[in-house]
């Protein structure tokens, strides 16, 4: 190939290299273009902090859904984060390496279970159980939290395990040499050294829980109401978009894109925090 072809290849590759960034910008531009004007038309306060959602009557308050998303995401983290981090610690520190080499890929493999399947199990197994033992409709904050908590487990375990595995062995040996027990060396040394990776895994999982749609639609009940207990049904931001998208037109559709803007901004902040936490520590080790 002549040198001219070389140049063409170089510039072609350079152009292609912008595909991901260009897609990201395109997504942001289109969601904001549809959603932002609406926000200012309705007024930020009447959009973000009003509790009436009734597009037919021109009421577009998404406050109950913001609260619902927060509750459900926090609930998922209360379940997923401790279990996931505990699993990661146990697999790294208290289990023989060959066993871990089987269990970790198995858990990561399970990350591939489609979210709709999780949602369906929530409906068939979890919701009836909640209805029978705790009352309420079953489809609720609690059901959504449990399902999402399980769904984020592979994310938490996988990234935390990498972070803990990246802690140099000499750290552990130092602690053990000073007479610490295995557990003392774990919580005094290893966890502290792997802290940034563990925190990043939890923040990324939070983003995933907040952004999950189909499973939440199936198990959360979808009532637009500020929840007063964990057995109340709720509608999250993502569920709101997906549920009304099919028949929304005009202002109502713009309202859904405005909901998308809120979601986009929050997720971007979470990702930014997670990425800057991991940066240079776990990645490129």
């Amino acid at each position: 190939m002549n040198l001219n072809g070389e140049k063409i290849a170089k510039y072609a590759l350079m152009t292609v290299a912008f595909s991901a960034v260009a897609s990201l910008l395109l997504i942001a531009v289109f969601i904001f273009k549809e959603g932002l004007p609406f926000m200012f038309k309705v007024g930020l306060r009447d959009f973000l902090f009003a509790s009436d959602w009734d597009p037919m009557a021109g009421k577009y308050g998404i406050y109950p859904m913001i609260v619902a998303s927060l509750w459900v995401t926090l609930g998922a983290m209360l379940i997923g984060a401790p279990l996931g981090v505990a699993g990661a610690i146990f697999l790294n520190e208290f289990v023989p390496k060959p066993v871990m080499r089987v269990i970790k890929p198995t858990i990561e493999l399970l990350a591939g279970i489609p979210s709709v399947v999780f949602g369906f199990l929530g409906v068939m197994v979890l919701a009836p159980w909640i209805r029978a033992t705790m009352g309420g409709p079953g489809l609720s904050v609690l059901a959504a939290s449990v399902i999402l908590g399980i769904m984020v487990l592979p994310t938490v375990i996988s990234i935390s395990t990498d972070a803990i595995g990246a802690v140099p062995n000499s750290y552990r040996e130092g602690a053990l040499a000073l007479g610490a027990t295995r557990w003392q060396s774990v919580y005094m040394v290893t966890i502290k050294a792997a802290r940034s990776g563990i925190i990043a895994s939890i923040i990324l999982a939070m983003g995933r829980a907040l952004g999950e749609t189909m499973a939440v639609i199936m198990v959360a009940g979808n009532t637009v109401k500020i929840p007063h207990s964990v057995t109340d049904p709720v509608r999250t931001l993502t569920a709101n978009i997906a549920l009304e998208m099919a028949n929304a037109t005009g202002m109502a559709r713009e309202a859904l894109f405005a909901t998308g803007v809120v979601l986009f901004v929050v997720i971007m902040i979470l990702n930014g925090v997670a990425l800057s936490t991991i940066k240079g520590r776990v990645r490129r080790k």
Binding site: L26, F30, L204, G207, R208, T238, M245, L256, L275
Partner: peptide
Amino acid sequence: FGTDCLAGIPSILFGLF
């Protein structure tokens, strides 16, 4: 950074877009 951010976007936003 763009690639990492794109990876974190929830699927419903891909659907909207």
